[in-house]
């Protein structure tokens, strides 16, 4: 019933392999998380998870990641737009620079950003004059998360923009649409699925991000402590079950959010006739 006659054989073996591999690499480690957590009583789990410090960490992690994701959607889209529609000297260089956050070790990113945004850093000192403290603040965390999430949006939106038929623009113009109407009514609806995918990837990456954040965060419990760091702290105190309890809740929230964005993406791509 799943099988279509196809020129390349090996449906059964490749599906079997896929399930085995996913099980080994993803499902077994994740289920260990649940097994480990289930050794605690429900009451204890609730105690850990509903602790003000934990709640503050969750809130910080998810809001900072969410804002970083949104910022990346806007500016990542702009970069993708420029890269896919114009050609100019140095374009290849800019194109390569977009991938930088992928390749840079996260700790390096963290140190670089911290020295830049701290009170006497190149950028931080000016922000400080306006009363904005960027490092050791949720703002700094968001900046770090924007940095690491940028390529996800650019690299998902760019191919879709390149594929958009320039004749659509011509057609809309001949029908009397101005540039803004062309953008809102023609480009935007066609780009929504890619933008959602880009956002989801950047957001998911940001939630799990640890290395680049801890330097710039300052890690003040209840204020600038992200959830992954809290998990690390628990581990360092040999509170393994506490750490896994926090992790399980993060996993569930992340899963729910990913399911939601996948659903939105499915709806929007159905609307543009790709589903």
């Amino acid at each position: 019933m799943f099988k279509h006659k196809s020129t390349l054989p090996g449906f059964r073996i490749s599906l079997g392999y896929t399930i085995f591999y996913l099980g080994l690499i993803v499902l077994i480690p994740l289920s260990m998380l649940f097994i480990k957590t289930s050794s605690m009583g429900l009451k204890e789990i609730w105690m850990v998870v509903s602790h003000p410090r934990t709640l503050a960490a969750y809130r910080l992690s998810f809001t900072a990641s969410f804002i970083a994701g949104l910022v990346n959607v806007v500016f990542g889209f702009l970069i993708a737009w420029v890269l896919s529609r114009y050609s100019f000297p140095g374009k290849k260089l800019i194109d390569a620079m977009v991938d930088f956050p992928f390749a840079l070790p996260t700790a390096v990113t963290g140190i670089a950003l911290t020295s830049l945004y701290s009170q006497n850093g190149w950028v931080g000192q000016y922000l400080y004059q306006f009363g904005i403290q960027s490092a050791y603040n949720p703002l700094g965390i968001t900046i770090a998360l924007i940095f690491i999430g940028l390529p996800f949006v650019v690299r998902t939106v760019e191919p879709v923009l390149q594929e958009l038929d320039p004749e659509l623009e011509d057609a809309a113009a001949s029908l009397g649409a101005d540039r803004w109407q062309i953008f809102i009514k023609i480009f935007f609806p066609n780009l929504i699925p890619a933008l959602i995918t880009g956002f989801t990837l950047a957001f998911a990456r940001a939630i799990g991000e640890y290395g680049s954040v801890i330097f710039i965060a300052g890690n003040i419990p209840g204020k600038t402590e992200i959830a992954p760091l809290l998990i690390m702290t628990k581990l360092e105190q040999f509170d393994y079950t506490g750490a896994t309890a926090i992790a399980v809740v993060m996993l569930l929230i992340s899963f729910a959010l990913l399911a939601l964005t996948n659903f939105l993406q499915w709806v929007s791509s159905k609307r543009i006739g790709m589903g």
Binding site: E167, L168, D170, A171, S174, L175, I272
Partner: peptide, 20 residues
Amino acid sequence: KMTKDRNVGFVFQHYALFRH
């Protein structure tokens, strides 16, 4: 005059219909 102000109907070889 810009295209949008010329009041010209244009039909393309590959239709250029808005697929969404």
